[in-house]
């Protein structure tokens, strides 16, 4: 694998850069700035950083107020803890059509040592269901920056899902990712692997393995889950025998769910979902072992591809 960076570092550095350009950008924190790294923004722009203490529901309300008053608030905390303010996000921010951005770090299993209380496997499902909410999941450091910039430039609420640290490179530069447009990273005619987040890199590795076995594999980075790039998904369903959807999320309701909903109606296609099944997560002393434990690995993806082809 290529160079490995950190999601939260990339996010926080990009945030400071964008803060220089956007005077109305305000960051709202619930006592986790040193963990989400928004502390960098706080140091650079102390008057545009709001600390509300450990109170996520209040944090979302404060952000709603800042947005009403014309600022562009970015709420940042661990994805798991933002979910306790889901109702406020739905009722104040989304229903009010407010320009509030959510940057949720430590998503998926990336907070491996903290265990199931901190690991978040449900956020994509509950965020994408909210009317008007955009959901983005960057695959690496450069795309974190691109998608953050895009998220801040579109009007209305955006939920950005970020891992903690482990961010192996997928893209060479920032400009390669655009909000709302899935990226085909390699073409293929047997199967298509649609992935988001850190699993994109894994999918590219799995595709190499599959190629070696003579299986032509397409890989798509579906970094924007809402609005879903329907054309790209439908095209993949026409050009291959089936889709493997890989995400560091519950197999229920996430990217796999979004793609299944689309294809079931528009073009029934064989799908295998690779994700976490029937679990809240668990502690591990390292991240990769934990991913592997749930089948989120190159081998797990290869196995899923074979399921589709063996049925064919």
């Amino acid at each position: 694998m290529r160079r490995v960076e950190s999601f939260r570092d990339a996010f926080a550095r990009a945030l400071v850069e964008l803060g220089e350009l956007m005077e109305e950008l305000v960051v709202v924190d619930a006592d986790v700035a040193s963990s989400t790294k928004t502390i960098l923004f706080a140091k650079r722009f102390p008057t545009r950083f709001v600390e509300v203490g450990i109170s996520e529901q209040d944090m979302v309300g404060v952000a709603a107020g800042l947005a009403v008053a014309g600022m562009v608030p970015l709420v940042s905390t661990f994805s798991m803890f933002l979910l306790r303010a889901w109702e406020q996000i739905r009722n104040l921010v989304a229903r009010g059509g407010l320009n509030v951005k959510f940057a949720a770090t430590h998503a998926g299993l990336s907070d491996y040592l903290d265990g199931p209380s901190h690991q978040c496997l449900e956020d994509i499902a509950v965020m994408r269901v909210i009317t008007g909410m955009k959901v983005v999941v960057p695959a690496d450091a450069p795309s974190t920056k691109s998608l953050l910039r895009d998220s801040l430039s579109v009007k209305g609420p955006v939920y950005m899902r970020l891992g903690r640290d482990y961010a192996p490179r997928v893209y060479d530069e920032e400009g390669e990712v655009k909000l709302g447009k899935a990226n085909v990273l390699r073409d293929g005619s047997d199967v298509c692997i649609a992935a988001c987040g850190v699993m994109v890199r894994f999918s590219l590795e799995a595709a190499k393995e599959l190629e070696k076995m003579g299986i032509s594999t397409m890989v798509m980075d579906v970094h924007t889950i809402e609005p879903l790039d329907k054309d790209a998904i439908l095209k993949a369903s026409y050009n291959t025998k089936g889709l493997i959807v890989v995400e560091e999320h519950s197999v229920v309701g996430g990217l796999g769910g979004a793609i299944a909903e689309l294809l079931a109606e528009k073009r029934p296609t064989r799908i295998v979902r690779v994700g976490v099944k029937d679990s809240f997560g668990t502690c591990s002393r390292d991240y990769l072992s934990l991913l592997n434990h749930y089948g989120l690995s190159v081998a797990g993806i290869v196995k899923a591809a074979k399921v589709i082809l063996n049925e064919g």
Binding site: V26, D58, V60, V68
Partner: peptide, 9 residues
């Protein structure tokens, strides 16, 4: 909470 946000802005 919202009132606070507006007041802060």
């Amino acid at each position: 909470s919202v009132a606070n946000g507006i007041a802060m802005a």
